[in-house]
Design a binder for these strands. Structure first.
Lengths: 177, 177
DNA sequence: GCACACATATATCAATTTGATATATGTGTG
DNA sequence: CACACATATATCAAATTGATATATGTGTGC
């Protein structure tokens, strides 16, 4: 499951421009997938070449022309086939755990800074997911992704809060030795 | 923080070959970072060019020659500087949540298959982390990464188990409409 | 009134990374 | 004796990131 497929899937929800798809990645998809313009725009071009989407140009009176993409029936069919064949693979890239793994090479103020930063990031993500939690147009599956994210972040935040004291203490002891 | 930095960091623990670093990514780093040979070998070459690591060739009597890399003092210094400047950025790529987001486009047997698969994956990851949990040579920071991972996976597994019944029920209702 | 940050909107590019493939051999299982 | 899996290195097309470019509008603070 790559950015091209996710763009196709987004267009199975409703019509979007590339810019709006980027916003979708930053909002509804934020806690489980990310993509940059550098992969979204080429993906949409390829989908167009393959006849899986069509485009209609909306002249922007003050901004550049907006290219609104729509899925074709072959596009929708193709996406449903992909969903049936895609395994639920999880991939995590955590700068936080990486820094913790090498925490013995940090000084204590830096360790505290990292813990503060990650707590703040989790808190922000919780606030955001909380704000979109009760959106009525969501399907049960969509609601599940929000609730799963909320629960995971809340739990991670609690874990860090419960362990930070002990971590800092042990870190200072280690530095003295 | 990229693969090159993680290779350098690994070599700050002890000497490794490229193959052994790959094993490290598949074991200790598995739940927070992944990397393929296609990024590890070029990274080691670059580190060598930059004088941050040295290499000693161990003739493999039956296998290809083994190239054992060691960090230099500049390499260690460089890695510590990077740790001080790297923000704790979290990035998640979850095929599971993506499939759940589009669950309304799946049939019910496929939804059940996905839930079974993710439960099994979480269970396997828990078993693995449990097996390395009490390794004595680990630093407090390293132990933290294992405990954090264990706790997160256990919590995610519970969440899926608690919600699967309701999810499947609602999915069947949605399909009837 | 004007600078500055931020939003709309598209697009490209070098560098990084993936996932597959190639090569060559050893070891354990059925 | 075949087949899967482990050791060990390396490369490559394709995907992706993160930065940069272009052009304009809108709101905020001094």
């Amino acid at each position: 499951m790559n950015v091209k497929s996710l763009c196709l899937g987004s267009l199975c929800l409703k019509d979007f421009s590339g810019y709006e798809i980027k916003k979708l990645f930053e909002s509804a998809f934020n806690h489980f997938y990310s993509a940059s313009y550098g992969s979204i725009y080429p993906s949409l071009s390829k989908l167009l070449d393959e006849g899986l989407v069509t485009v209609s140009i909306q002249p922007g009176d003050k901004h550049p022309d907006k290219k609104i993409f729509s899925v074709t029936s072959e596009g929708r069919e193709q996406f449903i086939k992909e969903l049936a064949a895609t395994p639920p693979v999880e991939q995590m890239r955590s700068g936080f755990l990486m820094l913790m793994f090498f925490a013995h090479l940090l000084d204590t103020p830096r360790l505290i800074e990292i813990l503060d930063q990650i707590e703040q990031q989790y808190a922000e993500e919780i606030d955001y997911l909380d704000s979109i939690k009760d959106c009525e147009e969501n399907t049960p599956g969509m609601r599940f992704t929000v609730e799963f994210g909320l629960d995971s972040y809340q739990h991670a935040l609690n874990f860090v809060r419960q362990h930070r004291g002990q971590l800092i203490e042990k870190h200072q002891q280690g530095a003295v030795k």
